[in-house]
Simulated assay, not measured.
Amino acid sequence: MKKIDIHSHILPGFDDGSSSEAESLRMLKMAAKQGVEAVIATPHYSAEYCHNSPETIRRACAELEARVREKINPAFRIYPGQEIMYTLDILEKLERGEILTLAGTSYVLVEFMPWVPYSDLYRCVRTLMTQHYRPVIAHIERYGALREKGRVEELTEIGALMQMNYRRIGGKWYEETTRWCRKMLKDEKIHFLATDMHNTKARKPSTQGAEVWMAKHLDSIYMKKLCYKNALKLIKQNTQRRENDKYGKYA
């Protein structure tokens, strides 16, 4: 199945992801073999990783894309973005152009500490939506606050989109997180799947286990949206940034 990966740490030396261009190319070769045709590079933005300017990220994406097209696939695309740790001044930083949205759109990949209270998740979504940014909550399986009934649905209703990592879907059936992830997918509560790849070992791009389970349990149309079509819609909207209510429904 074709895939677009909206969450990846492939830029060498930018964060705790790839350590070298060689490792980046190995990761992307692994991803391409699993059907990935494009990625959004999303280096962390946090107190620890706050020194990479948007222009530096854009330039690194262009340089790595050129190498991937030469070595792996001449049609492969790499788009710039960031995975932004939520803080109260996130909106101001976006408005000043200090941090990046996903692929130049109004979509913002936001992460939180695993122990984040639900009130912070809710506040983030409402804050970003006031200026017509569309929050994409990164790896939602990490947040205990979202395990309570109705909370994913409430955030979706006020504008959030949900991203889940492939890796947790393909886990063991008796693992609580895997069971929760699969239920969310069966109920069609998720909008994007991503690898969140960091390296070629412990956090490599791996989609096969998830795909095996999804092929047996999910509607094929929904599966294509999760892996490819919703991300393609996102990328195509980079000329419509900041136009309210023109983003469509994803579920």
Rank of each mutant, 00 (worst) to 15 (best):
H139E: 06
T87I: 06
I84L: 01
E63N: 09
K33G: 09
R242V: 13
G104P: 01
R151E: 07
A60Q: 04
S220Q: 12
I6Y: 08
S220T: 02
F192M: 15
L91T: 03
G159R: 06
Y79E: 03
R179G: 05
K229F: 08
R241Q: 03
K224A: 14
M129N: 08
K229Q: 14
W173S: 13
H44Q: 13
W180M: 14
A231C: 05
K216N: 11
Y174N: 11
L11Y: 02
I78T: 03
Y107S: 00
R123D: 08
K29V: 12
S18E: 08
K3C: 12
Q131A: 05
I4H: 00
Y79P: 04
L64W: 06
E111V: 08
C227P: 01
A62D: 12
A62P: 04
T130E: 09
C124F: 01
K2P: 10
L161H: 02
D15K: 15
I72G: 02
P74F: 12
G144E: 05
T87L: 09
I140D: 05
Y247T: 07
I169V: 15
E153S: 09
T56H: 11
W173R: 03
D16L: 15
K201E: 04
D245G: 07
V68M: 13
S8H: 02
I99D: 00
P117M: 05
I10H: 04
D245Q: 04
N73A: 15
E21C: 14
S19L: 13
T156K: 11
K236G: 06
L91K: 01
S19N: 15
M27V: 02
Q208V: 15
G13P: 01
T239V: 09
L91H: 10
L193M: 13
L11C: 01
T207Y: 14
A47S: 14
Y247E: 05
L102K: 00
F14M: 14
M223Q: 11
N199I: 12
K204D: 06
Y174V: 09
N73S: 02
Y122E: 07
W115V: 07
K3I: 06
K224I: 08
G35L: 09
I190D: 00
M27N: 10
A22K: 06
R134K: 06
T207E: 03
A145T: 13
L232P: 03
T105L: 02
M162S: 05
K172G: 12
C124D: 01
T130Q: 11
Y222E: 07
R67T: 04
P135Q: 00
P80G: 06
Q82I: 09
L161S: 00
Q240D: 08
G209P: 05
A210R: 04
L226N: 09
P80C: 08
K201M: 11
E175Q: 15
G97K: 10
L185S: 04
H7N: 09
L185K: 07
